[in-house]
Amino acid sequence: MPQKIILDVDPGHDDAIAILLAQGNPEIELAAITSVAGNQVLEKTTYNAMRVATLVGATNIPIARGAEFPLVREQITDGSVDAGSVHGVTGLDGPELPEPSMELDPRSAAQLIIDLVMAGEPGEYTLVPTGPLTNLALAMRLEPRIVGRVKEVVHMGGGYTIGNATAAAEFNVLADAEAAAAVYAADWTVTMVGLDLTHQAIATPEVRDRIRAIGTDLSRVVDEWLDFFGAGYESVWKMPYPPIHDACAVARVIAPEVVHSEEAWIAVETKGQWTYGETVTDFTGTGGQPFNNLAATKLDFDAFWDLIVDAIKRLSA
């Protein structure tokens, strides 16, 4: 049976490709999409999630609006969290997309997560957040029993050697470090699919050629997404090819061998002057803490892109 996932997103070009991959792969069932503020403000990320879901045919699943602000801190507005410089003023600049063909679910994102997890069997759902972790932290606070019923959490965020929003912190974690600290400390397994892994998932010219060769409207949209996203990455981070961060978390659920992970102790720093939002990671046990989560370390590059290319073909058929 396909693994059911709830995809919690803040689209974002790489979130859009994550939605495409989740909808287009038969090994998983995209059971719901929830939105959160992150790459852009909540109104825009919610609208983008609905447009992408319409584009890829994910029109029969609930889509719920999530958290507009972090749990306890003021939203950071100095440019380090609002990623307009990379994703554009809409959060998903580039090709024209269809207008949403569905209505939003009336529940909040946190309540939708709770309702699905509690109605399902233990282990039936995997949570795949690819943005700030506010919705998951709120769901845990409202209904702590979900922690024991979720199969696992696969989070695109963090990093064990690098940050991208500060020297120490990755964007999704910094955006709501208190929420991330709660999620990583809970009694479930979180797989951190962080920058050390996702920077291996770059859209090289050869990859772009494969996507263009599909020759469909959907492949054209993906190629134009990569044009805009790639230009932003080159301008801001001087990376010649953009890393498709968020799709790596979905790929980890589809085929764990594609995104190799190792046991580690991971905690989120919420008090450091220079290290606020850092995902502190210990692979050796020298810190005296028992391993509590997993950290993604190595990507099978070819197999990863095979998954995305196959999903585009399947959704284009």
Rank of each mutant, 00 (worst) to 15 (best):
E178H: 14
L218F: 03
V154D: 10
V207W: 04
E152N: 03
G287Q: 14
T77R: 15
A249V: 12
T275L: 05
W274V: 10
A311W: 02
F69K: 14
F291C: 09
F304I: 08
Q3S: 06
V221A: 00
P132M: 13
H87R: 00
A303T: 15
Y241W: 15
R65A: 11
T286D: 09
A186C: 11
L218V: 10
L197M: 15
T166S: 09
G194R: 05
K313C: 06
P290A: 09
G285N: 02
P122R: 05
G38Y: 13
V9N: 01
I63R: 03
H260D: 06
A139M: 04
P95A: 05
I17W: 09
K271Q: 12
A139D: 00
D93P: 06
L299T: 09
V52D: 09
A249D: 10
A58L: 12
A64N: 07
A31R: 12
E170Q: 13
F229H: 08
A37S: 14
D306V: 09
P290Q: 07
I308P: 13
H260L: 15
T270V: 15
E278G: 03
L71C: 02
M1S: 11
V236H: 07
G287M: 13
E269Q: 12
Y47Q: 13
V236S: 03
K238A: 08
L315Q: 07
P98S: 13
P106C: 06
A264Q: 06
G94H: 13
I17E: 06
L218W: 03
P106D: 05
D187I: 00
M102G: 02
F304P: 08
T279Y: 09
G215C: 08
G194K: 13
W305D: 07
A249E: 14
T134G: 01
V190Q: 02
V268A: 09
Q75T: 06
V154N: 02
G66V: 11
D282K: 11
A181G: 02
T275S: 15
A31F: 12
A213D: 12
T216D: 05
A179E: 05
Y47N: 08
R210I: 04
S35Q: 13
E224V: 10
R252K: 15
G272F: 08
V173W: 01
D217T: 10
I312K: 03
P242T: 12
D115W: 11
L294A: 04
L218R: 07
I308W: 11
H245Y: 12
A22E: 01
A32R: 15
H155P: 00
G194N: 02
D310S: 10
T198P: 00
S219W: 12
A249L: 09
D187A: 13
V153S: 00
V56L: 14
G148R: 11
Q289E: 15
L20T: 01
N164V: 07
T46L: 14
L142K: 06
H155T: 04
V52I: 15
L136A: 03
E263F: 06
I76L: 08
L174G: 06
A249Q: 02
D217N: 14
V183L: 10
G272L: 04
R220S: 13
G24F: 14
W305C: 07
T90H: 02
V72H: 11
E103P: 02
D223I: 07
T281N: 03
P26A: 03
M50I: 13
G159C: 05
R210T: 05
A303Y: 03
Q111M: 02
P95S: 04
E178I: 14
I214S: 00
A179K: 06
Q75P: 08
